[in-house]
Design a binder for these strands. Structure first.
Lengths: 167, 167
DNA sequence: CTCTAAATGCAATAGAGTTGCATAACACGG
DNA sequence: CCGTGTTATGCAACTCTATTGCATTTAGAG
């Protein structure tokens, strides 16, 4: 299972004819496996079980992956970068969903036409960043997925604010 | 001139029947006068000329203004909060423009229908944050406004990258 | 196998933002 | 106009994410 992501990561890096190092492979594999945006901290703790890699190296690898367009960097409202595997088709137009409850960030595929925003004259748009905040399927009460599984961040910080959860 | 903004700020705070302090009045006045989103640092340096206020107090006043809905807090890609005078009509739907060159942030009025973004089933949207990045009227070359005026941040960090400026 | 450029690990640093606590001041009642 | 209690402020110390400098290690080409 996990080995498959490592292989995929290794291939991706090798095809870019870049140096294949364990740090690069493992960080990229972690992102591929996660399927959602991860913080530096999340990556570090995931790798610590099997391949302990220095904090700074992880920062540098993430920066490298971003420059190579293997990943993209998402600014958050908690001053923490999150990194997601880059999606070729949505280059320059990123839409993300951040759960107000568990803080996890997901990429949104169907972004609609957010290009409809009009700029004042003389302004030129180059990139778009859209963040939708709300409640994810696991945190929305009444949803059968509402049990948090292993790699989730408990407890729900909104648990004490029923109003915020729509009750 | 500046005194007008102070008066306006004072009125706004007094009408909320909250304690009118110089820190609150001056910070709010600075935001009103700026007409764009300011960082904590920008506010601090503006006030230092006339009314020196402690860093921490400014942080606390900004937090208070945000809670009172006098201002709203904009997350940036440089891990720095920016604060803008709150706009009643666009509550919960914020669109901002950030210049890649001078780093200034402006509120966008015409947000189009960015609600068109579709969420996966089981997800609930609560707030939207849209940031358009690009070049503002003063940084876009060929524009007659291209001379940076006094309160701008020189030099343009993109000056050495003609490609980024669209040349 | 050897060599060199590139990547890594460690320590120190930077910078935004936060917290604890003693002091100051706003506004209210007399 | 003056005392009084609640609230805001100033200062110092601290937290946390992220960055930088430098010596050491390593990937991969020859």
């Amino acid at each position: 299972m996990a080995i498959l992501f490592s292989n995929a990561a290794e291939d991706m890096i090798r095809h870019r004819s870049a140096r294949v190092t364990t740090a690069r492979v493992q960080v990229l594999a972690a992102l591929l496996k996660a399927g959602r945006a991860l913080t530096h901290h999340e990556i570090e703790s995931r790798l610590s079980r099997t391949h302990a890699i220095d904090r700074v190296t992880i920062y540098r690898v993430l920066e490298w992956l971003t420059r190579q367009r293997f990943a993209h960097k998402i600014p958050g409202d908690d001053r923490v970068w999150r990194f997601n595997v880059a999606d070729e088709e949505h280059a320059g137009q990123h839409a993300h969903f951040k759960c107000n409850c568990c803080d996890r960030v997901f990429c949104l595929k169907d972004t609609g036409n957010i290009h409809s925003v009009k700029l004042p004259s003389g302004y030129r748009a180059q990139q778009l960043e859209l963040t939708v905040k709300g409640l994810c399927a696991e945190c929305l009460p009444g949803n059968k997925l509402h049990k948090l599984s292993a790699n989730k961040k408990p407890p729900c910080k909104l648990a004490n604010y029923p109003q915020a959860l729509g009750k």
